[in-house]
């Protein structure tokens, strides 16, 4: 049995017939052709698959595609504004907030959610906010710095 879904990914509208068990992560990667969203585990622990569903972060490996029917999904590919990187992308680059890059798309989108709900987090709040995303390369230190920087830049841009 297949069911129809309409999902808008990064502003582009898709219509597919999918198996109800299809995970949103696989939908985005296999049917959307957007491979920036990574699958790093099978127990919803690593957070590499984090995307935004209607502006709110979600682990796309534990969301069914059918649950996102009618939603607007933003992946790492849709975060920049044209050629202008999002402040979080810039700050991850500036602060060496990534090494192998595999956790990075999910980490950046989790940080996006963090700053959406807390525009000026303390380091402890950043660490707490990102504890659902695993990184094996950076020891998290430069990720914390990157998020702190991005928060400051976004606050300055808002004024």
């Amino acid at each position: 049995m297949k069911v129809p879904v309409r999902i808008t990914v990064n502003g582009r509208r898709f219509e597919h017939e999918v198996e109800p068990r299809l995970l949103l992560a696989h939908y985005i990667r296999d049917l959307g052709g957007l491979t920036g969203t990574k699958v790093g585990c099978d127990t919803s622990q690593c957070g590499s698959c984090t995307v935004l569903i209607d502006g709110v972060s979600a682990k796309s490996c534990t969301t069914l595609a059918v649950q996102a029917d009618g939603a607007n999904v933003t992946t790492i590919e849709g975060l920049a504004d044209g050629d202008a990187l999002h402040p979080l992308q810039e700050s991850f680059w500036d602060r060496h907030g990534l090494q192998c890059g595999f956790c990075t798309p999910g980490m950046i989108l989790a940080a996006y959610e963090l700053l959406r709900t807390n525009a000026s987090p303390s380091d402890a709040e950043i660490r707490h906010g990102l504890e659902g995303n695993l990184c094996r390369c950076t020891g998290y230190q430069n990720i914390v710095r990157a998020v702190r920087d991005a928060a400051a830049q976004m606050a300055a841009a808002d004024q």
Partner: peptide
């Protein structure tokens, strides 16, 4: 200097084996 490999990694355009 900033890393030269990062632009593709922060935009989701890097190609890993699974991609």
């Amino acid at each position: 200097i900033r890393r030269r490999e990062d632009p593709r990694l922060i935009t989701g355009s890097a190609v890993y084996t699974g991609d």
